[in-house]
């Protein structure tokens, strides 16, 4: 039998399977911890820091930290919520996120977090960094203005041999997501669609299907991210993964 551990989240007594990550353990106990770079069924990366919680008074990412016996976890505190807001605001100011002109608007997880947190305007100055759009591939295009470098596409979209179809190019400020030259050539329709789904923002889009869902029926139009129904919608995909 699986070993169970008990711990507290915001002083609420919780139990979960030993070794499960805090994000998943919290969800099993009915507590939502906001995430962005995390994707069900894919190895967590802890890159976006949106899921930051305090474990025994120390800041840790809930998507990469396994629960352990006796942990005292803080999730919904003023300090942590402000920190999460700040991370989302930084992403909005660092890239060029023109929501009104984006196909993913309404289905975008970055935007959904901002809606949930009721962010009216970011506290940081907009950077207006110069980024390109790469539409050279016949099936998909990359809008680097919107990419938040979460690596979800790299981690989740793989060919039949388990090789990543997307990759990081360049370094530091210049880093960009790119299709692997060889594997990209044979990208199937199915994998192209999956890449678009996996992308939390509107950075990877399949050509010729934009604005298919009418306003009002998109994923986060009426239901905030992290509530029961959207969580279910998102976890439908997890069955396909490793």
């Amino acid at each position: 039998m699986e070993k169970k551990v008990t711990f507290t989240i915001d002083n609420k007594e919780c139990t979960a399977t030993a070794g499960s990550f805090i994000v998943d353990a919290a969800r099993k106990n009915g507590i939502y911890i906001p995430t962005l770079c995390n994707y069900d069924g894919v190895k967590p990366a802890g890159s976006c820091r949106v899921c930051t919680v305090k474990v025994n008074k120390r800041h840790l990412t809930a998507c990469t930290t396994p629960v352990a016996e006796g942990m005292e976890i803080e999730v919904d505190t003023a300090e942590l919520n402000d920190l999460r807001n700040a991370v989302v605001e930084l992403l909005f100011t660092e890239g060029n996120h023109y929501c009104p002109a984006c196909e993913k608007s309404g289905d975008c997880e970055l935007q959904a977090l901002a809606y949930r947190f009721q962010i009216m305007a970011p506290r940081f100055p907009f950077q207006f960094n110069e980024r390109d759009i790469d539409a050279s591939h016949p099936k998909i295009y990359h809008d680097h203005n919107r990419c938040i470098l979460c690596k979800r596409c790299i981690r989740a979209v793989k060919d039949k041999d388990g090789k990543s179809i997307f990759e990081f190019n360049n370094r530091a400020k210049e880093v960009r997501i790119k299709l692997d030259d060889k594997l990209g050539e044979t990208l199937s329709d199915e994998l192209a669609l999956k890449a678009m789904e996996v992308c939390p923002v509107g950075s990877i889009l399949v050509k010729e299907i934009g604005f298919k869902t009418p306003i009002g029926k998109r994923k986060f139009d009426r239901i905030p991210i992290g509530t029961q129904e959207t969580t279910e919608q998102l976890s439908h995909k997890e069955e396909h993964h490793e």
Partner: peptide, 18 residues
């Protein structure tokens, strides 16, 4: 009151910013 996306972040006119 900043009233709308353009007042807040420049909006579509700001696409010329780079």
């Amino acid at each position: 009151v900043s009233f709308g996306e353009c007042a807040i972040m420049g909006g579509l006119p700001a696409m010329r910013n780079d």
